[in-house]
């Protein structure tokens, strides 16, 4: 039982690490700030979600598990709000968005 649980937990955490990698690659490769925001917000939040799920399988007490979920929810809400703020301010400052055909 523990073996299966550990394997599942390890798989989730490694999958999470993959999405963090994808987020950073997007941050470096994407052409403008808006597309970079897409990459960071979505890929990193999914990565954190998978890591939290993986760690949830290992928790020893209820309050520990709930705390992990609270942290995840907080990062999710803060990340979405911050992404919106940055995108809105970028539009206000007329930072042009990159387009395929120009």
């Amino acid at each position: 039982m523990t073996v299966i649980l550990n394997a599942l937990s390890a798989a989730l955490i490694l999958a999470g690490a993959f999405f963090f990698l994808a987020g950073t690659v997007g941050l470096l490769r994407f052409p403008d700030v808006y597309t970079r925001l897409h990459a960071l917000t979505k890929a990193d939040n999914l990565g954190l979600g998978l890591v939290v799920l993986g760690l949830l399988l290992q928790v020893e007490s209820l309050s520990e598990g709930v705390k992990l979920l609270v942290i995840w929810g907080l990062v999710l809400a803060a990340g979405a709000t911050a992404a919106h703020l940055v995108a809105r301010t970028a539009l206000e400052h007329d930072i042009r968005l990159w387009r395929r055909r120009e």
């Binding site: 963090f20 700030v33 939290v52 942290i71 990062v75 990340g79």
Partner: peptide, 25 residues
């Protein structure tokens, strides 16, 4: 642009949290 620089906060907010949770375990 300045917007690109503040993306670091986003990066730390999620990646740093995940790294710390893993360290904690």
């Amino acid at each position: 642009t300045p917007a690109d620089r503040i993306l670091a906060a986003q990066l730390f907010g999620t990646t740093g949290v995940a790294a710390l949770l893993l360290l904690a375990q």
